[in-house]
Simulated scan of single mutants.
Amino acid sequence: MVLVLAGCNRNYELLGPYALGFDGENVLVAVCEDRVVDRLFMSQATRTGGSVESERIWEARGEASLSAGEWLVVSGSNPGLVNSRMVAPDPGPGVRYNIGINDVPSPYYSASFTIPDDGLAEGDWVSPTGDVRSTPCG
């Protein structure tokens, strides 16, 4: 007898349903599934010589209902969210961003992004797997 258990685990770990974009002025985080964001954090890691420096650049709480394809401005003003920490991001080549959205008991989703070696041009979006595209969710 063979017993097969299958399920749908939607608690993403570092490959969450997000995209990181740039509009020429701001770094953006798009949701690729409908989400109610009640808590989030974002860190930025840069390599300097042989060491990596990481800094928490954004923390916010509140309630923001987003449909798939909508985005938040990193460390900016976003309806429904109150920022408790805001540091301007520096999206240079090779910079790594980690984001976590929501908190227990809500589903927790995280994603990690690395800015491509040739940078992120205005209108570009990068996925957690490193794919660059012109739309956030593809």
Rank of each mutant, 00 (worst) to 15 (best):
L3D: 09
L5K: 04
A6K: 14
G7M: 12
C8H: 14
C8V: 12
Y12G: 05
Y12C: 06
Y12A: 11
L15M: 14
G16E: 13
A19P: 07
A19W: 03
D23S: 08
E25W: 01
N26K: 14
L28N: 01
L28I: 06
V29T: 10
V29G: 11
D34A: 10
R35L: 14
R35W: 13
V37K: 07
V37Y: 04
L40N: 10
F41E: 15
F41Q: 10
M42E: 10
S43H: 15
Q44V: 05
A45W: 06
A45I: 11
A45G: 08
T46R: 13
R47T: 14
T48Q: 08
T48N: 11
G50Q: 07
G50I: 05
G50S: 11
G50N: 10
V52K: 06
E53I: 09
S54P: 05
E55V: 15
E55W: 03
E55K: 15
R56D: 13
E59H: 07
E59N: 10
A60Q: 08
A60C: 09
R61I: 09
R61D: 05
R61A: 06
E63M: 04
E63D: 03
E63C: 01
S65H: 11
S65N: 14
L66E: 06
S67G: 10
S67V: 05
A68R: 11
G69H: 04
E70V: 04
W71E: 07
W71S: 15
L72F: 02
S75N: 02
S75G: 04
G76T: 00
N78E: 05
P79Q: 03
G80L: 03
L81P: 07
V82D: 13
V82C: 03
V82F: 07
R85L: 15
M86A: 15
V87E: 08
V87M: 10
A88W: 04
A88I: 08
D90A: 13
D90W: 07
G92V: 04
V95Y: 01
V95L: 05
I99M: 15
G100P: 03
D103W: 01
D103V: 06
S106H: 05
S106D: 12
S106T: 02
Y108E: 10
Y109T: 06
Y109M: 12
S110R: 08
S112T: 15
F113Y: 00
F113S: 03
I115S: 01
P116Y: 02
D117M: 04
D117E: 05
D118M: 01
D118P: 00
G119S: 01
G119W: 02
A121Y: 03
A121G: 04
A121E: 10
V126M: 09
P128Y: 10
P128E: 12
T129D: 11
T129Y: 04
D131M: 09
V132Y: 00
V132P: 01
V132A: 02
R133P: 00
S134A: 13
T135R: 12
C137V: 14
G138T: 06
